[in-house]
Write a protein that binds this DNA or RNA. Structure first.
Length: 242
DNA sequence: GAAACCGGGAGCTCGT
DNA sequence: CACGAGCTCCCGGTTT
């Protein structure tokens, strides 16, 4: 149980790191991060506190650094050593991630509604607006009292001229029903993410995939594969091309 | 009766 | 500049 909580925390750490990466990669940024930068991003999240992290970790909460984050699930559920593998990676074996850039060197891909909803679901501060009913199945529900607040925040995030309402947001959600990205559940204010979308949006997914029961640790190759896999998903999620 | 849901359709913004 | 994607906005009607 504790191990699962810690695994969630690690997944959240990745998620935050991706947010930072996305924030850092606006405009014509052509920065090419490698694994060490990735670690720096995570450190940035947990040590300096990125804007997205402020929502996750209240000031009174203990500050985590990358090694702490990495060690905890390792100690508690893997009995292995991820961070050693990471630290021992020679320079020439570091994964070189593709450039965070869209075709033509233009800006980032627009945030999509389902991405925003998933982000909100992972943000404890938004629990008063939207909550998981069954996280593993991707079923979530808007909180009747505060659903308009969430909609307004979405509208602001998009920079809409008029105030976004739940009704209009729900219209967009109904459009997802045609593509299958999100479907409506026959229950008040309740929707469900498509399985593929849910996996794509969940950084902890690859983690559980690559760390097989009994495997005990992540090999260097697995770790690098993880980085590639995660980063590729990050790119797919945020950019047309890498 | 109120809240939530539904789908048509025109319009807007942005990336290609 | 045209085009398509992904909403946004409005509306009238239906279901819970």
């Amino acid at each position: 149980m504790q191990a699962c909580v810690e695994q969630d925390r690690l997944g959240q750490a990745f998620e935050d790191a991706f947010d930072v990466l996305r924030q850092h990669s606006t405009g014509d940024l052509q920065y090419l991060p490698d694994c060490k930068d990735y670690v720096n991003v995570l450190n940035h999240c947990y040590v300096t506190g990125s804007p997205s992290c402020y929502g996750m970790l209240p000031p009174e909460q203990p500050v985590y650094n990358w090694k702490t984050v990495i060690n905890r699930p390792v100690d508690l559920c893997l009995e292995g050593n991820i961070h050693q593998s990471l630290q021992n990676i020679p320079e020439n074996q570091m994964v070189q991630f593709p450039v965070l850039q869209q075709k033509g060197g233009k800006g980032r891909k627009k945030l999509r509604l389902f991405e925003y909803l998933h982000e909100s679901l992972c943000n404890p501060e938004m629990a008063s607006c939207i909550q998981w009913l069954d996280k593993t199945k991707g079923i979530f529900q808007f909180v009747s009292k505060n659903k308009e607040k969430l909609a307004q925040l979405w509208g602001k995030r998009k920079g809409n001229r008029k105030t976004m309402t739940y009704q209009k947001m729900a219209r967009a959600l109904r459009n997802y029903g045609r593509t299958g990205e999100i479907i409506k559940i026959r229950r008040k204010l309740t929707y469900q993410f498509n399985e593929a979308i849910l996996q794509r949006l969940s950084p902890s997914y690859f983690y559980s995939q690559y760390v097989q029961p009994g495997q005990g640790y992540l090999s260097l190759n697995s770790w690098n594969a993880n980085c590639n896999y995660t980063y590729a998903n990050c790119c797919e999620r945020s950019y047309h091309t890498c």
